[in-house]
Design a protein around this nucleic acid. Structure first.
Lengths: 239, 239
DNA sequence: ACAAAAGTGTTGATCGTACACCCATGA
DNA sequence: TCATGGGTGTACGATCAACACTTTTGT
């Protein structure tokens, strides 16, 4: 128990894996990289990499995120630790313990395939299967977690740009959950939650080319939703 | 990213830390061990230890749990991964990445201080402060997580023995949340959730020495609570 | 004028809370 | 028979889902 005999423990490699999620064209997408080396050469995988000696897993995740997306400033982005995957056989070559994160982006830039990755690309969530290692499972866990957290936290704004309309916010819910929501009721629930969104005075934006311009909102200071916005089994077309 | 140059990564020690929680005499308790070596010799800490070469973090956690509690069978106990703590300075001697778990026990046995720990003891949650390393924070995170999961999962039964009364189940909520609940309404909510609890036919038990014998229930197959059992700010004596 | 998208109003059903009340047991 | 804890009934208020309706823009 925390003894310090240098030989009492096995050295492990520690990595971070990132499930980078965003919404493009009304569908959930994940950022994938094509592996250049064995094992799994040519297969798609989640971006990630080794921890550097002086950084925490959170810092490593943010560094990798910046490298993979090419974003200059990733400080504001939502980064959430999912869980740690440590099964002995998860990497065929050596013992690797991986701390997995979910990252949520608005309005994604084209990834610039830098770093060691052969190529990086946004892939629709439904087509992101057959990934290397246990990344299928990590990605599924990320989606489950994000879907659940939409219910009782203000996480949805992390998928939106700094200023957004309530219609755009509703599309986040509809896309991630795959259900349709009633617009009047959604609006009331969101506005009834103090600190979820704040109006941007005087601003208005046309969303679909036609129709009444929508009021513009910013994310508010609240982090939790009371009462929660529950997923109801009302089937509907997913946006 | 997942390159295999053996020198491209820094070796880390990987440990598990356990926040073992239980209810004794109407109060939340945590299992703590007294450290025998530097650093933090003589201080109290969460039980834990290094991963063995061939086991996952979950397996290591269950092994440590069995060692510390002296329980013969820990297979049925609820073990939940909290998060991973990886800040570079969290251990003064070396780089240690620790996967933290919360474990929930019913009816705790006296710990038998085995293993490397000088002594192991159940400590009331409110008095468990000044722990070694960042264990104060891990323990607080464990309590927060458990309290939150009581709202929307069937986790409460993990604090109860195999057969329990609804009054005992209600005490779990009241103790962890520190609020009083309305008994008739609690009963209805629990019974209205399919699969939360199942009646044990014909069984009844006296709880307080006096009063009507209570019907006995078992944990059901359900894992999530729909609708959730929300914490209301109705102040009341904490059981 | 029409379509499309935002926003408001209203109503009936459901749910939750608070509380009164009855039941079974030990002292 | 009283205290104690288990269990049932009920009524009022809050909340929510559903849908009708108005407003503002582009074509």
């Amino acid at each position: 128990m925390h003894g310090y005999d240098k030989h009492a423990f096995e050295p492990f490699a520690v990595t971070v894996d990132l499930a980078v999620l965003t919404l493009r064209a009304g569908a959930l997408h994940a950022l994938l990289v094509e592996r250049g080396q064995e094992p799994y050469a040519g297969r798609w995988a989640l971006p990630g990499g080794f921890l550097l000696p002086a950084e925490s897993a959170e810092e490593a995740a943010r560094r990798e995120l910046a490298e993979e997306t090419g974003l200059a400033d990733v400080t504001g982005l939502h980064l959430e630790q999912l869980r740690t995957y440590s099964e002995p056989g998860r990497d065929p070559r050596m013992r690797v313990v991986s701390v997995a994160f979910a990252a949520l982006l608005p309005d994604p830039p084209e990834p610039h395939g830098g770093g060691d990755a052969a190529e990086a690309r946004w892939v629709p969530y439904d087509k992101a299967q057959g990934l290397a290692f246990d990344h299928d499972r990590i990605l599924a866990d990320a989606r489950d977690r994000v879907g659940a957290k939409l219910e009782y936290t203000c996480l949805a704004t992390a998928f939106c740009p700094a200023e957004f309309t309530l219609g755009e916010l509703q599309q986040v819910y509809e896309t991630v959950w795959g259900t349709a929501l009633d617009r009047p009721n959604f609006r009331r629930k969101v506005l009834a939650t103090p600190g979820f969104v704040e109006p941007v005075p005087g601003a208005a934006r046309l969303t679909g080319g036609r129709g009444k311009p929508a009021a513009v909102y910013r994310a508010g200071p609240a982090t939790t939703l009371h009462p929660p916005l529950l997923r109801t089994p009302r089937e509907g077309r997913p946006a």
